[in-house]
Amino acid sequence: MLEIKNLHVNVEDQEILKGLNLKVNKGEVHSIMGPNGSGKSTLAQVLAGRESYKVTEGEIIFEGKDLLELSPEDRACEGIFMAFQYPVEIPGVANTYLLREALNSVRKYRGEEPLKHIEFVKFAKEKMKIMDIGDNLLKRGVNEGFSGGEKKRNEIFQMQILEPKLSILDETDSGLDIDALKVVAGGVNALRSPERAFLIITHYQRLLDYIVPDFVHVLVDGKIVKSGGKELAYELEDRGYGWIEEEKTAANS
């Protein structure tokens, strides 16, 4: 589904990703872990199409298409979704309005009819239950005055509505209490299917107790330096990242 080859990315003239390779197949859940500043969020932003992140080398192929040629909106319509680490507040735009506009944009791209208001409400209600989202959150401005947990739940709620092929969660678990974490994980698990894939960027192994990954990758200094199964996450939790960085230095010398 997704293939990233030798990806180099600059942010404000500083190279953050330095030759990253990653392959994600349908139905798989990949977790990307790594210390602060290793380039995890940069990867998420580049996949979503943030223009201030400059790709200097490499390629990203998504479902046979050159992703780097597509605008952020076309990527979303092709089925890529990023849950923001810091969701943006947009006062004056009702949450429901955004959801409906987004869903109908995606449907239009696929050549489908827009959903009628009543159909949309019915569809959204089911998803609201899963994500423990109340009516009041729908009527308010997008993320306006939401608590941290509400913002993150709202991101996954949007993901539920758009039903993307590839979902990227950028530190969605950071700052969540255990109840909110369970709701977020429940939202992800409800969407898991053999047709969909997930890229879960996280700092902590804790989320992976609830969303069990097929693969865990360790990102250090702009490259994936180690990959393994879910047990790698536990090892990182116990031992930190130091030993991997040492391994890497040893291998280089």
Partner: peptide, 20 residues
């Protein structure tokens, strides 16, 4: 960027923000 990343075109996203 947030609105565009949800599939809404650049022009429509601008309109939404201005209307807000």
């Amino acid at each position: 960027f947030y609105l565009r990343s949800r599939g809404i075109s650049k022009e429509a996203s601008r309109d939404i923000i201005l209307n807000a």
